[in-house]
Amino acid sequence: MPLFPRWTNTVSRLSVFLLLALPAVAIGGLLIIVRSPYGTKVNRQVVQPIQFDHRHHVGDEGIDCRFCHYTVEKSPNAGIPSTQVCMSCHAQVWNKSPLLGLVREYYFKDRPIPWNSVHNLPDFVYFNHSIHVNKGVGCASCHGRIDQMAAVEQVSPLTMSWCLDCHRAPEKNLRPVEYMTSMTWKPDPGVDGEKLGADLAKLYNVHTRTSCDTCHR
């Protein structure tokens, strides 16, 4: 009779396996969680203090993104429109609507509307809207079909690998700048998208960088 019965072999193999596997699964699991839609918070509607409906403004009325987010072409921030921008129309249109009561209240009290942020980058990441939109990256490329969202949600994971995917091969995501704010732009049928992207990259002198200091300072 050996000191250890044969089944202890299984136990010892199993315990060695578990000793290695458990931390691997735990760490790997965490890495997966933060990259999962749960971790990146994509496709989750963010409730705002005022029910602003992009479906109506963009979809029905066809208002250009830049009418409200007018600094997108010249500043790092696209800019959450000031209350005055809301009031420039709604002083005339729907100026008695109870849905807009809060807007009027904030405006006349001169208090900022506390919008909830949808797209959050970490504080050590510096993103610039202007260079992207001027080099042929459309609004919808990152923000999705805003014209179909009742409450805006994040559609891209905004992880570093997602950024790098495009920075390494931007051609797939380029479009003519005149269609920048179009929600529905697609290359014309018969046009090779990749080829078009490559041509546009040349035309716009697209020069994506992947050095750390591109985004981290």
Binding site: I80, Y107, R111
Partner: peptide
């Protein structure tokens, strides 16, 4: 939270 201006001052673009 994002606290936008009530009236954006002249010539100001947030982030610049």
């Amino acid at each position: 939270r994002i606290l936008a201006y009530t009236r954006t001052p002249d010539g100001l673009a947030p982030g610049t």
